[in-house]
């Protein structure tokens, strides 16, 4: 990842427009062609610097539901249980954390009433309780990482 990639990642975190050629502005700012922007984005995705590039959907605004859930899984059951939990399409991401409650994942469902069903299915399939922690209030969400700032 070179200096130009860092600037590209920082610019693209703010988002692109919905226009015929949405990379034109970014290409102009960086002094490269639109083809080069697209080629670099592809490379950054391939190399794992970007997890994703595209529309960021808000499940709740679609009438769906979104929740953070935690489980306490013994170490020797972890791999098997992670596989079971991750197999649910509704599980968007899943992190292992250092705590008695060691598995933390986000569930997104297209219909709000489907969320409790998924929770119940996960409990049944894994045999462990799921602690449901939906947000009650959002005080801030501004996830943004400066590429190049940590070098």
């Amino acid at each position: 990842m070179d200096a130009l990639d860092c600037r590209l990642v920082n610019l693209l975190q703010d988002g692109i427009d919905i226009t015929a050629q949405p990379y034109m502005a970014v290409a102009g700012q960086l002094g490269i062609s639109e083809e080069q922007v697209v080629q670099r984005v592809g490379q950054l995705l391939d190399d794992g610097y970007l997890s994703r590039f595209g529309p960021m959907y808000d499940a709740e605004k679609m009438g769906g539901a979104f929740s953070l859930c935690a489980m306490q899984i013994p170490a020797d059951e972890l791999e098997k249980t992670a596989e079971t939990v991750n197999a649910f399409d509704e599980v968007a991401h899943n992190y292992l954390r250092e705590h008695a409650l060691n598995m933390w994942f986000v569930i997104a469902t297209e219909h709000a009433d489907h969320l409790p069903v998924v929770l119940q299915q996960i409990e049944q399939k894994t045999g462990y309780p799921v602690y449901n922690m939906p947000k009650l209030e959002e005080y801030y969400i501004g996830l943004r990482f400066e590429a190049g700032a940590t070098q």
Binding site: V9, D17, D47, G48, R52, M56, Y57, A147
Partner: peptide
């Protein structure tokens, strides 16, 4: 996007890879 169903159309960095 106007209705908030799309927050934005953007890059999602892998923060581990970014340091």
């Amino acid at each position: 996007r106007e209705r908030g169903i799309i927050r934005r159309i953007a890059a999602v960095p892998n923060h581990y890879a970014l340091g």
